[in-house]
Design a protein around this nucleic acid. Structure first.
Lengths: 356, 356
DNA sequence: AGTCTTCATGAAAACGATTACGTTGGCGCC
DNA sequence: GGCGCCAACGTAATCGTTTTCATGAAGACT
């Protein structure tokens, strides 16, 4: 019952604690025979090294911390999944701290992780350079995910929001829409800003003559619903509505449905993220897919390489591409006289965006 | 850069390390004045106690471990969210290890957590008493979530699957359906078994004369789709189909749609879980709601009290009630001539199930 | 005024591992 | 046979805390 320590193993195997340590770690410095005996005793006694004692002397915890914002849903879970998968593959543990609305909470969480982790994965749209400067010890390697911060002090990993939005607008133009409205995300949110920039750039390029039509949203379904109503109150309905995320697109869709409008016959609709719900709404939503598991995995791997050689920061900015997933909300299926998607297998994917 | 320790604080504040420790922890044993001075120095130096060193001596890590199965989706994320919220409120950290398909992986994960955590939250439908006996040190407090295991050695927290399923069948009968088919979940899955038992019991009670119609599924959407096709191939379509979880209900719905059947006019449909998708499919799905955040929160709180007094195990078996959420797939709205739900606000909730 | 109690404080012993450094013994080489 | 070298192993220092115990001073009580 009383936890058994390296001393117990040493006594039982009739060697010193040093030999036990050597046998169980490197393996070198002990006879094959002694090593064998020690390992047997350790197994028999079910010896497990005390993690705290070990990391006290080695200065390593083999644990990485993940600081996450207050987000629900599939995005969160897929991200953790990706991180966890990659972490386990490398023998790292994962200490999570989620649901941080306020900067103060995030700071507290960051402080509490001190000394418990070898590195940090930070996914919080609100943290900025000053915050990190103040709360993250310079000695702690960190990778910033989806952050506007550009610094040589951290690794950075972003989704190619700009290119994804740009591609979606181009796609909409390709299938015949030119009058494309945009429902924007929350201000000060990096993802949202990049998506809007992508929209603006693509419009300037492919539909320069039509005036920009941007209505404000905040990534929630409700704001999308409101945006839909705003759009319908305008003198002329746009040919297509591109929402900065899927939840808003869904809200928008319900506003249209409520008003008796048909998607995509009366108005086309597109989102961003490809959350699972996008497949299940009727009609299934055309959107920009972000491969979230990959995002998590890449983030962890970037951090892991950072841990191995802490100076290798230079080439540590990565970008993850997106894909356009065409379903039924944009009319392209209609144009080509294809049947409407019944089940989710109707996805058609246009791979897009630069990697790395 | 070099991490600063309690010694640095002591030197700077011109006291011994013992006093620093006292000032920063209990606060008692030092003058108010000295304590003040020490705290100021600590703050100025940004001193953070080394977690490993501390837990080496205190035998506490202030961390709890969560062992989770390989599950995607909202359930996972809401659960973590609930756990995290409760953990933070108690100043506990959360070490997660997810995505364990095999028992071996779970065992390895459990072993790796040794000494890193003060207690474990185990949510894995496949672990049984023997597994725990073999892999979980008796000294480590644990709470089992949704597990068939009954033991005085662990805390246990379950969803009231039986009562939820029973209530749903009763509801279906109440609104006029008697010929109710059931799509079962995977064998050996505790939740699935309990739900089926609830269905059987309710049918025996409220529709004893109609023969049971159970078709096998495994909780995946595809299996639900297949079940739907199986049902349609039978000589007579049932009046209602009750799937053991929402994803299967959704699969079933697509099978019906594909065949040109209308839900709920031609056949009623109900699920279990109330995953977010349930709201967004067309028509919105009537289902049994499980309050997942509460599940996570309760699990953590049960564990926390277990940590505080480890003997208090006796009364440590809890059950969490469910609710029936009626939407549009069961015809009850039609019967009462209410308009169909357009937006998600159309939920009507029947609170149900015993708590604790 | 002397003794006793109280209390702030410091010195030092843990906690359980890793690892630098000594010590030993066996072996090869001259 | 003596010398030196190397491998195997043990001793002890170390990591940064908490906590026990000793010490001394100050205040209270007789």
């Amino acid at each position: 019952m009383a936890a058994i320590t390296i001393k117990d193993v040493a006594r039982e195997a009739r060697v010193s604690v040093a030999s036990v340590s050597r046998a169980l770690n490197g393996g070198s410095g002990v006879t094959a025979e002694t090593g064998q005996r020690i390992r047997e005793v350790a197994k028999r006694l079910r010896y497990v090294p005390h993690a705290a004692a070990r990391s006290l002397i080695t200065r390593r915890t083999n644990t990485i911390g993940a600081l996450l914002p207050d987000l629900h849903g599939e995005f969160f879970s897929e991200l953790i999944r990706g991180i966890d998968l990659a972490a386990r593959a490398r023998g790292l543990h994962l200490l999570v701290s989620s649901s941080h609305d306020s900067v103060e909470e995030a700071a507290a969480a960051l402080r509490a992780m001190q000394g418990r982790v070898d590195g940090m994965l930070i996914l919080s749209p609100r943290v900025d350079a000053a915050f990190l400067q103040a709360n993250l010890p310079a000695s702690l390697p960190a990778v910033l995910v989806n952050s506007a911060v550009r610094s040589d002090a951290y690794g950075v990993l972003n989704i190619d929001n700009y290119a994804g939005a740009y591609a979606m607008v181009r796609h909409l133009v390709d299938i015949g829409h030119r009058n494309i409205a945009f429902v924007s995300g929350p201000t000060k949110n990096f993802d949202a800003e990049q998506r809007e920039l992508g929209y603006r750039a693509a419009m300037a390029k492919f539909a320069a003559d039509v005036p920009l039509n941007i209505v404000a949203g905040d990534f929630t379904e409700d704001s999308g619903y409101l945006a839909g109503r705003t759009l319908m109150a305008q003198t002329a309905l746009p040919q297509a509505v591109f929402a900065a995320n899927d939840m808003m697109a869904v809200g928008c869709m319900y506003a249209f449905k409520e008003a008796g409008l048909n998607v995509p016959q009366d108005v086309a609709l597109a989102g961003f993220d490809d959350i699972p719900i996008a497949r299940y709404v009727t009609p299934p939503l055309t959107t920009v897919r972000v491969r979230i598991v990959d995002l998590g995995r890449s983030a962890l791997e970037q951090l892991a390489t950072l841990l191995e050689n802490p100076d290798h920061l230079s080439a540590a900015a990565q970008t993850l591409g997106c894909e356009i997933v065409t379903r039924d909300t944009c009319g392209s299926h209609l144009d080509t006289a294809l049947p409407k998607t019944i089940r989710k297998f109707g996805d058609s994917v246009i791979r897009y965006g630069r990697e790395s």
